[in-house]
Amino acid sequence: MIYYTREQIIELTQLWQGERLPDGRPKVADHLLEKLKSMTLEEIWLPLYMKDYRFQFEGELKPLHAGKKLVGRAVTATFMPTRPDLMDGIKRERGTKGYSGTCNQWVVDNLSEGDVVVADMYNKIWNGTFLGGNLTTAINIKTKSGGAVIWGGVRDIEQMEKIDTQVYFRGTDPTPIRECLMASYNGPTRIGAAVCMPGDVVFGTKSGVLFIPAHLVEDVVNSAQKTQAKDIFGFAMLALGKYTAAEIDSTIWTLDMVNEMIFFLDTDPSGEQYRGLDWSMEINAAHGDQAAIDELMKGYLI
């Protein structure tokens, strides 16, 4: 089994230049995680897609708690079907590392506050139940606000529903976890059509799960906040009859509209949290700067 070391995780995530967790995973700031909780999937997805991160979303998952959002830092695990010689090696490794129990228990035992288990169980549901009532309780205690994303099964669903921890999964079965083993821990993994790296921010909504690369979180949050600010201003102007829907929906606003929006955000109570955002690209586009226009149009042309 491959246990990615701190040095290997840093190499994998070298675009991240900020603080790191003891195991080497990027530690995205808590205040950014809090901001994400008020944002929508579409607000977050678009700037990632525009930066060519095209395989970050998976919608074919079931949420344990309908409507409960999940935001946290990914701890990844990749499983595969068992074979005797490989299992013997993992059992020897388990002894040298002092682990006990099954591989899924090892992952949960090493979680910390804010972590989200992201486990590729290769869509195994029968004999592929990564979580049940006990391990979901352990996740709740260890991570507090964290949870799990399982490309496989869970069991004890009636017990799990009583625990205030969000879990996304493929299906349920009464069988325990069997005939599988963990091939890698805290390395790149796949959840359906999406790719997740250790330390990615897991963004779970009622629509599905998005994995945000740590080094892009701040940019994504700023972009989403600008979308929210434009919506607040746009809704207010439509209510007043000041601008038409076509003008508000336009990708490139006039200079008058941009300046009026900035004044609105600076003076209206609804714009307080959006004050200080950088609108230079929108201003440059309004002046006819082609580079700024091209950048803003990316979101329209996808």
Rank of each mutant, 00 (worst) to 15 (best):
A29W: 00
A29N: 01
D30Y: 03
D30T: 04
D30Q: 06
D30M: 05
H31A: 02
H31V: 05
H31Q: 03
L32F: 05
L32R: 00
L33N: 00
E34K: 06
E34G: 02
K35R: 13
K35A: 12
K35M: 10
K35F: 06
L36W: 02
L36S: 00
L36E: 01
K37V: 03
S38G: 10
S38I: 04
S38V: 06
M39T: 05
M39H: 07
T40N: 03
T40R: 04
T40I: 00
L41V: 11
E42T: 08
E42C: 04
E42M: 07
E43N: 09
E43P: 02
I44Y: 00
I44N: 01
I44E: 00
I44A: 05
W45P: 00
W45H: 07
W45I: 02
W45A: 09
L46C: 06
L46E: 07
L46A: 11
L46G: 04
L46Y: 05
P47D: 01
P47G: 02
L48R: 01
L48Y: 02
L48W: 01
L48A: 02
L48T: 02
Y49T: 06
Y49N: 06
M50L: 06
K51D: 15
K51G: 07
K51A: 15
D52K: 10
D52L: 15
D52S: 15
D52F: 15
Y53D: 10
Y53S: 08
Y53E: 13
F55A: 14
F55M: 12
F55N: 14
F55T: 11
Q56D: 08
Q56V: 15
F57R: 04
F57C: 07
E58I: 11
E58R: 05
G59K: 09
G59A: 13
G59V: 14
E60H: 09
E60D: 13
E60S: 12
L61T: 03
L61M: 08
L61I: 06
L61N: 03
K62T: 14
K62N: 09
P63K: 04
L64C: 02
H65W: 03
A66S: 09
A66D: 09
G67W: 07
G67S: 04
G67T: 08
K68L: 05
K68R: 11
K68Q: 08
K69E: 08
L70Y: 03
L70M: 08
V71L: 13
V71H: 12
G72I: 09
G72T: 08
G72F: 10
R73L: 15
R73Q: 13
A74G: 06
A74I: 03
V75S: 06
V75F: 09
V75R: 10
V75D: 05
T76I: 10
T76F: 12
T78E: 12
T78K: 12
T78L: 12
M80G: 13
M80F: 05
M80V: 08
M80H: 10
T82N: 15
T82G: 14
T82W: 12
T82Q: 14
T82S: 15
R83L: 11
P84F: 14
P84V: 12
D85R: 09
D85F: 12
D85M: 11
M87Q: 15
M87V: 10
M87T: 08
M87I: 08
D88Q: 13
D88M: 14
